[in-house]
Simulated scan of single mutants.
Amino acid sequence: MISIISGIGWHTVGAASAASFYAPISKVKQWSWETTWAIAGLFSWILLPWIVTWFLVPDFSSFYGQISSHAFLGMFLFGAMWGIGNVNYGLTMRYLGMSLGIGIAIGVTLVVGTIMPTIINGTFLHLLTTRSGQITMVGIIIALVGIAIVTYAGHKKEQALGSQVVDFNLKKGLILAVFCGIFSAGFAFGLSAAEPIRLESLHIGIDPLYAMLPSYGIIMGGGALVNFAYCFIRLAIKPELSVRHDFSFPWKNLIINGVLAATGGIMWYLQFFFYAWGQASIPNSLSFVNWMLHMSMYVLCGGIVGLALAEWKGVGSRPVRILCLGMIVIVIAANVVGLGMAAEA
């Protein structure tokens, strides 16, 4: 039971980092979003995953030589799938706005990333036929209700602040949100494909908390390929965007922007670093709950961060009460999932 509680706790820490990562990025001035995102991604998807792996793995060639090419391909392709979800994420915000876009996308991601791996692995019937699985499924449904409530609160906030989505298109936005949710779940699929790396990490004596981390460079490498391609293509073909312009400012400005972007990228990576800790703390037979916990805690921490940064100032008490209700429901969902895991254990 203590392991389960610590697992939920580590997922919360990771989600808090994810919910806060955009704060330093939003402080970057005079750079295009594409340049900022590419710098953040360099730290998040390339440097940190491989630096951490370098500390953990004494001999790369010997370690990765034990892994089949099929597993490598699966991890990389699922990472690229996750990267496509990241690109769709921004387009979803464009057509639906932040609240509706995030709520729908994360709701779909939670369901797909939680349920599909169990179907692929042939363990889905376990969810439906055992007491622990049924309790856990109830927790997943409660989490979706909580996400819906938080999404509604965010929509009311945007209305109260007079925020308008210039390119609002419900049909196009919903389609993109669903695609975003499905493709973003690629990271969960990538982690399932990375099971051989986790087992090899344990075999050479790596602490279980870190056993999944050597797979991140491959999974995130797939995502990096898609994201970098998107950013660089836009910088190349859009006349209003220019790398030369972004790096034409004094060194002091460049250093400040670089540090802010890098900080955001590091915080984005840390969500998955602590995801690995949370996953390691939860019994392998219950691994399907990790993605659900991560995504629901992401929404919960996003609400808390928004309140802490005074993003809800001036919206009135009703949207804030709705937000708090949604966050309470998500906490209840996490507790229900914890009960389901305790019943299994």
Rank of each mutant, 00 (worst) to 15 (best):
Q30N: 15
T35Q: 07
S6Q: 14
F63C: 10
G103K: 06
I102S: 14
K171N: 10
I218V: 14
A18Y: 15
G41A: 00
V111R: 01
L176W: 08
V138Q: 07
F232C: 01
F78S: 10
D207F: 01
I206V: 09
E311M: 11
I8Y: 04
L199N: 11
N257M: 06
L77Q: 07
N88T: 04
A194Q: 10
W10H: 12
M98I: 13
P239Q: 11
Y269R: 10
M292F: 13
L100E: 07
E311H: 12
H203Y: 08
T109V: 02
P319I: 06
G278W: 00
I233A: 11
H155C: 06
G41Y: 01
L144Y: 05
L191P: 00
F288H: 15
I135H: 12
I256G: 02
A177E: 12
L110R: 02
I119E: 08
G316D: 02
P58H: 12
W251H: 10
A80G: 13
A80T: 07
I135M: 14
W54H: 08
M267A: 11
F72V: 12
E344F: 03
L91A: 11
V87P: 02
F274S: 03
G154D: 02
P117A: 01
S6L: 15
I182Y: 05
V337M: 14
P319K: 05
L323Q: 08
A310C: 07
V320I: 14
M267Y: 00
I51G: 00
P49Q: 05
G79P: 04
A229W: 01
F124T: 00
P319C: 09
I328Y: 03
R321C: 03
W31H: 11
G107H: 01
A211I: 13
I102E: 02
A143Y: 05
M137L: 15
H126F: 06
G338A: 13
R244F: 09
G303H: 09
Q164D: 06
F168L: 10
N86C: 07
L191N: 14
P49E: 04
G79M: 05
R131W: 05
G107Y: 02
Q134F: 07
L260K: 11
I140K: 06
M341E: 12
